[in-house]
Amino acid sequence: MLRWIALVLLVVLIGLQLKLWTGSGGMREVQTLRAAVQKQSGENDKLLQRNQALAADVSDLKHGEQAVEARARAELGLIKPGETFYQVVERPAVSASAPPASGGGGH
């Protein structure tokens, strides 16, 4: 009789171990969820830094004339009266695959 109870308890223990390691809510799922939480935490930190930088930009634009002027110069090409505008145009690079222009004529 004692052997049967021990055998039943052993089978129950094995069943519980299988459920713990392979079943729904088991160790694999817990590890997967921990990795997902860690990844999401990293992404949240990046987004928080981005939001703080954007908030600083908004504050500068609301309260600082220099930030507005710098943005207008960069994005809209602002030139103040009395300033001289210079534009540097670089020559396009010569393509190596283009054949040289020849005077015509063959052999």
Rank of each mutant, 00 (worst) to 15 (best):
L16E: 12
L16H: 06
Q38L: 13
R71K: 14
R3N: 12
A74K: 11
L13M: 14
K62Q: 13
A67M: 01
W21C: 08
S95R: 13
L18K: 04
A56E: 14
V37F: 08
P99M: 04
V68W: 00
P99L: 03
L78K: 04
L16V: 07
W21S: 12
P92M: 11
A36V: 06
G42W: 01
L9M: 07
R28L: 08
A6F: 11
L61Y: 15
G103D: 15
G15I: 00
L48F: 11
Q38P: 00
H107S: 15
I14F: 05
G23P: 00
E29A: 05
D57L: 14
L9Y: 08
R3S: 12
G103S: 11
W21T: 12
A53T: 13
A35P: 00
L47C: 03
S41E: 13
Q52A: 09
H107W: 09
A56P: 00
G42V: 02
A6T: 06
V30T: 10
S41Q: 15
R50F: 04
L33W: 12
F85S: 15
Q52L: 10
Q66S: 06
G82T: 04
S97D: 09
Q52S: 06
L18A: 13
Q17D: 11
G82M: 03
K62E: 05
R28F: 10
A74L: 15
R3P: 00
K46V: 04
W21L: 14
A55N: 13
L48C: 05
S102W: 15
K19W: 06
K39F: 10
R73D: 02
V88R: 07
A72W: 03
G77A: 04
Q52G: 01
L54T: 06
A53E: 14
L48A: 15
